[in-house]
Design a protein around this nucleic acid. Sequence first.
RNA 1: GCUCAAGUGGCGGAAUUGGUAGACGCGCUGGAUUCAAAAUCCAGUUUCUUCGGAAGUGUGGGUUCGAUUCCCACCUUGAGUACCA
Length: 987
Amino acid sequence: MCCNTFKFAPYFKENTTMRYDFNQIEKKWQDYWAKNETFKASNTSEKPKYYVLDMFPYPSGAGLHVGHPLGYIASDIYARYKRHKGFNVLHPQGYDSFGLPAEQYAIQTGQHPAVTTEANIKTYRRQLDQIGFSFDWSREVRTSDPNYYKWTQWIFIQLFESWYNNNSNKAEHIDTLVEVFKSEGNATVNAACDDDVETFTAEEWNNYSSEQQQEILLKYRLTYLAETEVNWCPALGTVLANDEIVNGVSERGGHPVVRKKMTQWSMRISAYAERLLQGLDTIDWTDALKDIQKNWIGKSVGASVTFNVNGHDEKIDVFTTRPDTIYGVSFMTLAPEHELVSKITTEAQKADVEAYIEKTAKRSERDRMADVKTISGVFTGAYAEHPFSKEPIPIWIGDYVLASYGTGAVMAVPCGDQRDYDFAKHFDIPIPNIFDGVDLSEEAYGSKDNVKIANSDFLNGMNYKKATKRAIYELEQIGQGEGKTNYRLRDAVFSRQRYWGEPFPVYYVNGMPQMIDKAHLPIVLPEVEKYLPTEEGEPPLGRADVWAWDTESNAVVSNDKINNTKIHPLELNTMPGWAGSSWYFFRYMEDAMRDETFASEASLKYWENVDLYIGGSEHGTGHLLYSRFWVKLLKDRGFVDVEEPFKKLINQGMILGTSAIVYRINEAPDFIVSGDVCNNYNNSEKRAETLKLIQSHTGQSLNSIQLDPVHIDVKLVNASDEIDVLAFRSWMKEFGYGHIKFISTKSERDSDTIKVNREVEKMSKRWYNVVNPDDICEQYGADSLRLYEMFLGPLEQYKPWNTAGITGVHSFLKKLWKLYVGQDSLNVNDTEPTKDNLKTLHKTIKKVQEDIENFSFNTSVSTFMIAVNELTAQKCTSKAILEPLLVLISPYAPHIAEELWEKIDNEPSISTAPFPTFDASHLVESSKNYPISFNGKMRFTMELPMDMGKDDIEAAVMAHEKTIAQLDGRTPKKVIVVPGKIVNIVG
RNA sequence: GCUCAAGUGGCGGAAUUGGUAGACGCGCUGGAUUCAAAAUCCAGUUUCUUCGGAAGUGUGGGUUCGAUUCCCACCUUGAGUACCA
């Protein structure tokens, strides 16, 4: 009761508009921005354009934690900065809303993924809004929206209707290929296509049936249906692309993956391997990410060599990067799956070979990868003929040769390749030495440098470079080889056996895929009663009752109408997650004509491509490669004008959690010891004493104990790493451990100061270290959250979050407020700024501008702190200083900046106020505090005039008493004077 | 194995053409204010020290008048990739 009376005490009746009430201020400005569409970008503007993009989020059910907005805050600061700098900024946001988690949830609960996705998006939007981002929401995209995926389907059709012409080095419409086939056949065509296309003449082509022609065209199309070996994940019931597999298990869920032959849609990304590689030189990405993509594309230059097989018509093609070592070949190895194995194996070896193939087939890809050390293989009994020496070369099979790379066969050069060397040693195969003066008794000589070829006929005495050229030339002369470039990059599987993804605009006539005309898009995802595969093992769309295409009415109709004349079955697979994200950056450019086009010509021309893209590096071999591929296709086909989607890319690092840990005594599970007790126990000097302390609590006498770490909720721990015991007890009660007792170093009994140990781990519910931005915004405000996320450290770096530190930036904001707003009136007036005021302002302008342009946001926050500390000490009230200061801070802490901007009599909004101009004249100094160092070690400083000459400086320094003391009678050997910088005395 | 990035106080980190190492903040210590707490403000806080100084940026070398910064070797951590012929 008595507490209530306080409420009416006059003490509490303060002027609320003078307080830094961040909750009220932030709400006010977020509403203002939304109502006035402050950040709506225009497609027509006098200003130069700038496009800042975030990787759009997948709206998961868990909502955002404090780590997610890091990149968004950085890009928002940059977008706001660019507006101050006079740019027309496009800064959109949307949702990558198709995906596995929503589907898994649907399988468990029966809820339609569209429903849960919608709910998740609502949460995301609320959470994003409260952080005060300057997004133009009028251009929002959602990949699961039919009006959006209509155009994803449209792009798929474009890929289907394209082939890659290696002569023009670009994709062309499939009709141009058909024209060539009609008039010349395919002998002259230089295309990226399947390996197994056979040569035909124009006459043959014209006589083929329509089905035969379609079958051939499929081998050329940039998206094609083919039976290929795919990565099948039984647990997820779907195939996965190479980049979705990490260490042999699925990226999502960590389920095992097996190889399986299946008919699937693929994307002929390999056609673009060279352009994807070359394009990296034209974009401003980090070298680290470029390296990731370079490695993934995996270009290697060498030669293909054809070996004749003795006694057979068959030939073996191999790829080698070392044609110069052709005379070092002493055997050949085929992959066990190689198609020639069964044909060339001799009767005598048949049993051994078959046993070996059976054995290796049983081993999973993962076992094979894990077991690199074991050497295994078997002789086929057959011999190939050396192209030059005509010597017989034994042909082996071995599982160190992969069927999926190159031709699935290698010419083994044991003197130059360690694997060939090991294989030869193991099976006692000769190791001919073709390197001049190299010792091969221990290992192969893998280096290309500092060695001359020997025992190699026409290659003798040559170095690597010369010999390679000559060998290729000679191979070409005899028609048994040519120069060749190989890429590791594989075509990407594009089908998924899932429900929650884009349906293909495809139906089947006699098993051949047909595209639905773009006029009838979108083909909308059908309803199903369950989201699981069918009993027959078909994808979930196999459960749809209305999933057939009527070619007369051009509509999706009921399955029972299928007659395979006019009404045909539709494709049951859906597109993978990366389909929708491979072109969304173009969709944001369009603000008016979204129904007519994926993005209009005018919009595409105005915005071109993304100037700054911020997101995680985990997309290095997925999204960032596929997007580049699709953009190149769209460019080749004349739909867009740019070759690369993202001019500049920055990868933000992950924010990690700071877990709080105490320890349970294994032998006395009712007791929990604090972090410091555990540390003492692990310290040999304090161990005995600590054991005594523990025994005095538990009453048990133990010689040694085991301490098991227990993660506790980080919310229960204060800035000094101490647990709030009361809160902790009630938290433990939820788990049924309300009776637990504590042991700490501080007290003999149950203590109120239990310390935790800290550990940096990934933010996860499992470790109770997740921090929700909602809580931070409520307690400290969005501006504090934004500043603190930036203040934590460099954007690209991984760094731990610890809520304790946020008080630093929060009290900075309070100080900033107090600089402008006094107890009951404003502090800002028209006083002339002092020299010091101007100096502080201009060095801040300079630093902040440099920092933003270098994406060094952490250092600008400390620059602001210094500026506010200095101006407070200077008692600055001058509007000429305080007004431009707000513009500097506004990108980082926009709400407080808007509020103070309005308070000092400006029209809202601050968002397009010009960025202050730096004037170097305010930083000119008349004197310099010279560091005086001896042998490079700074010993004292000395104030000297800035314009003092070298000799005068030396004289002044040498006369200083501390110099004399330092030298202690010695004469210096040398005195280095760098005017304006430093003095160094040697001796 | 190969490729790339990074190692600085108790903690996050700063030092951008080599020129005063530890900015800024957290935490900690002491003080002011307060009945008390919160909040706020002030001072101190790399280590050692005989209080004069001395050492110090993962380790060991090198270049230089001078190295956190450049070069070489090694160690540790993280990321990518993996029998790629």
